[in-house]
């Protein structure tokens, strides 16, 4: 079985089982939206090796566009989300077109600068509701038929969409396109000397990544009924970088694990953030960034390749020690790409 198929089935299985385990559909929906956001970021940065600090722009704009289309125009959700994807792709094309020529840190700076422009646009534009954002966005009727107001129904829709989108991203990496991406990351001049137009390929990967990030933002706005400035703020870009590094950048399932972990942690701290150390009561719900920062530091110090990356490495190590190099390679191909 292909890794893409395995991941698709795993997400659906876990996703269907989770509500029975007592987890709230709304919480699970949020996890899924951020998992998709993290996967979109990983698709570009994990596979191309250029750091984007601009992905919040796609996520945020996707949220605003879908939110506006649902609330003001009242079109059906699939069209609203499709529009968010189109806008994300266009913005990705413009931003990528300007950034992709740059190397290393300069690429990161250009994406950050352009994302900040998008942020100020969101702050000033007449239809984004400035500081308040777009609130009480209706979820609409899917294809004009299925009302999504029920949290469980909404969750089902998001589960299928996210599993499908993550499948698509992974499947692309298993096609010759993915091989070319990995080759470019390994040695760009060599890929060029074999006739591959590296710049176009990187731009394509960036546009795909931006579209999916906008889709994730749209889903998030639709689910929570809210599109607001924090979605487009640069800290959201930092957030998604952190999710991927925590789970394992460049691995297929790492971003999903990392995103779920962070969203769960935020939810937990917000609800049960009061801790008592030696008679001193600290309310951690107001200090979530500090806690996440500390966990991130621990993670970087203890397992550099992220949770999933580290598991892959240790499994390979174990199999190699057990004189099973063939199995080690299978794990490699199964989990890494």
């Amino acid at each position: 079985m292909r890794t893409s198929t395995a991941i698709f089935l795993a997400i659906l299985t876990v996703g269907v089982a989770a509500p029975f385990g007592g987890l709230y559909p709304l919480f699970l929906t949020k996890c899924l939206a951020f998992a998709l956001f993290a996967c979109s970021f990983n698709f570009f940065t994990g596979n191309v090796g250029l750091l984007s600090i601009g992905h919040a722009a796609f996520f945020g704009l996707g949220a605003y566009v879908a939110g506006h289309a649902l609330k003001v125009w009242g079109i059906t959700p699939e069209l609203a989300l499709g529009l968010a994807v189109l806008v994300g792709a266009s913005l990705g094309f413009v931003m990528g077109g300007m950034a992709i020529r740059r190397q290393g840190i300069y690429f990161a700076m250009v994406t950050l600068a352009l994302a900040q422009m998008v942020y100020f646009f969101c702050l000033q534009a007449p239809f984004t509701g400035a500081e308040d954002g777009l609130q009480r966005i209706p979820r609409g009727r899917l294809f004009g038929l299925l009302l999504l107001d029920n949290d469980l129904v909404m969750y089902g829709f998001v589960l299928v969409s996210v599993a499908g989108a993550i499948w698509g991203l992974q499947r692309l990496m298993e096609a010759p396109f993915g091989q070319v991406m990995l080759a470019i990351r390994d040695n760009e001049p060599r890929a060029m000397s074999l006739g591959y137009d590296c710049r176009s390929y990187k731009l394509m990967a960036f546009v795909i990544s931006a579209s999916v990030a906008a889709f994730a933002g749209g889903l998030k706005a639709q689910t929570l009924g809210l599109a607001s400035l924090p979605d487009a703020h640069w800290t959201q870009s930092g957030n998604v970088i952190l999710m991927c590094l925590l789970g394992g950048l460049g691995t297929a399932v790492g971003p999903i694990v990392g995103a779920t972990f962070i969203v769960a942690l935020e939810g937990y701290l917000a609800d049960f953030g009061l801790i008592n150390i030696m008679g001193l009561t600290i309310d951690l719900s107001t200090k979530i960034p500090i806690v996440i920062g500390a966990i991130f530091m621990l993670c970087v110090l203890m397992f550099r390749k992220g949770i999933v990356g580290e598991i892959i490495d240790r499994t390979k190590q174990y199999l190699r020690n057990a004189q099973a190099p063939v199995a080690a390679k299978q794990v490699d191909t199964l989990l890494q790409k």
Binding site: Q179, L182, D186, N187, P189, A191, S193
Partner: peptide
């Protein structure tokens, strides 16, 4: 062309 410094796709 080929390159003076060996150029292969190391991770493939």
């Amino acid at each position: 062309r080929s390159f003076q410094i060996s150029a292969v796709f190391a991770n493939l």
